[in-house]
Design a protein around this nucleic acid. Structure first.
Length: 428
RNA sequence: GCUCCCUUCGUCUAGUGGUUAGGACAUCGCCCUCUCAAGGCGGUAACACGAGUUCGAGUCUCGUAGGGAGCGCCA
């Protein structure tokens, strides 16, 4: 993290990264990020360049610099500083407002082999003499990153491709410092659904936003690794496979769009295939956030099993789980009319109530058997049995399989809800 | 304006001169079915455009168009 912008809190930025990584299960290995603690190193590096004639003191007013830019623009070139003090180093040494500028080579070009973009060549004539130390005595980003990376022995720089244009400047600084130039890999940007830049206003940008939306860390990682990269036809990757198979060299050059629907699909794959017990902590987090008293209902692992094929996110799962942790808050009028108001409903509910009351073992399988037996006894199709019971249990006509729905209510609640449904049936 | 980068189904991608251009998400249809799903089977759907090189081009070259990034005493 290079944060010399004292307008913002570095602590908050670092904490957000730490939180996100912890949730994703990644171990942070942060380099120095408080630049104030490394000021001596930046000064030392700048002194060295100054002594070797690779940098110089300069002072121009904002207006003067602006005029140079305009002049360059007028010539059809890109706006830039003209290097007036290049060979007048001493002139500004004692000026309190002076900056230190890097002497960019005037001839030739910088060529580097980017691991994802391939060969990139930029002429030095396109670069100007950038400021490496500001008048306030702090180093600028392009200089600080290089010094930090040299000190940390960084051999491979992987970052967003919005940095490709900075790379030649940085390579020049590495070389001026006599340090080995690392390898570079510039990853393409991720755009939103409409191909626009991801923005905090309209998109989820922080990994923690995805947690709130009910996605699993593993699913987020899996989705992200597949964005701009692939390994044959494989879609689902374990962490171990990601580490083993991923290679920056295989990353696509073009930007990609973030498709929440595919993330949702992947999330469900993990919901369905992971051990339900391992999902409980994250699910519990969502239940509590939804204001649900987990102690008032069934084992969350059993709820996961009942709902995992029916939802795409844990947030949705927590919402749908409500019916087993709290009283039915609202009866769907259409459902009541259609399934409780039918001629056969009372008999079905009575029969089921009695069978449930006498069921020796309270488990999905016996309950399923019971429903089947009632169906045979009353000579009614499964739909005529299951739907009234479903409305009785949930107040709606949509829920998991009828045996799971009844089982998760628990015997007492199930019987009470049938009684309530019986009353509704009588007045319907 | 200047410089750099990018361009295969709606989306994520496979493809490195000869393929019926493959897979996945989404979508549509059918099957299964106690609702909703999940699952199974099948369908629609792409090489931005134009020149060239070549016996042959999604694959190589050039150009055009479109998109993105950068051009600070921000990072």
């Amino acid at each position: 993290i290079e944060d010399t912008d004292r307008e913002r809190s570095t602590d908050a930025a670092v904490q957000a990264i730490l939180d996100g990584m912890a949730w994703l299960g990644l171990e942070p290995d942060l380099g120095p990020y408080y630049q104030t603690e490394r000021m001596d190193r930046y000064r030392e590096a700048a002194e060295k360049l100054l002594a070797e004639g690779k940098a110089y003191y300069a002072y121009e007013s904002k207006e003067a610099i602006e005029a140079m830019r305009e002049a360059a623009k007028a010539k059809g070139e890109k706006p830039r500083y003209n290097g007036y003090y290049r060979d007048r180093n001493e002139a500004c040494r004692d000026d309190p407002n002076r900056v230190i500028r890097f002497k960019t080579p005037r001839e030739g070009s910088v060529v580097f082999e980017d691991k994802v973009k391939g060969r990139i060549e930029i002429a030095n004539s396109e670069l100007d003499d950038l400021v490496i130390f500001r008048s306030d005595g702090y180093p600028t980003y392009n200089f600080a990153v290089v010094v930090d990376d040299v000190d940390m022995g960084i051999t491979e720089v992987i970052r967003g491709d919005d940095h490709v244009n900075n790379t030649p400047r940085q390579i020049n600084i590495y070389e001026a410092l006599g340090a080995p130039v690392p390898a570079f890999a510039h990853l393409p940007m991720i755009l939103d659904k409409d191909g626009k830049k991801l923005s905090k206003r309209t998109n989820a940008v922080s990994v923690m936003d995805y947690r709130e939306q009910g996605f699993l860390p593993h699913a987020v990682l899996n989705y992200l690794v597949r964005l701009g990269w692939s390994h044959g036809d494989q879609e689902v990757f374990s962490i171990d496979e990601m580490q083993r198979l991923f290679d920056v060299g295989d990353v696509h050059k073009a930007a990609s769009r973030f498709d929440t629907e595919k993330l949702a699909w992947l999330n469900q794959q993990y919901l369905k295939n992971d051990n339900p017990k391992s999902l409980v902590p994250e699910f519990r987090w969502h239940l509590e956030r939804a204001g649900i008293d987990v102690a008032a209902g069934p084992d969350p692992a059993a709820v996961i099993v009942a709902l995992r094929e029916r939802v795409h996110t844990l947030k949705e799962m927590a919402e749908r789980a409500q019916i087993w942790y709290a009283p039915i808050s609202e009866w769907d009028a259409k459902a009541v009319k259609k399934h409780l108001g039918s001629a056969t409903a009372p008999a079905v509910l009575e029969a089921a109530r009695e069978a449930l009351q006498n069921l020796p073992t309270w488990a999905p399988e016996p309950i399923h058997e019971m429903v089947r037996e009632v169906s045979e006894k009353l000579e009614l199709g499964m739909g005529k049995i299951a739907q009234p019971l479903r409305v009785a249990m949930t107040g709606t006509q949509v829920s998991p399989s009828i045996e799971d729905t009844i089982y998760l209510c628990g015997r007492d609640t199930a019987l009470a809800r049938i009684d309530e449904a019986l009353r509704l049936a009588a007045s319907a």
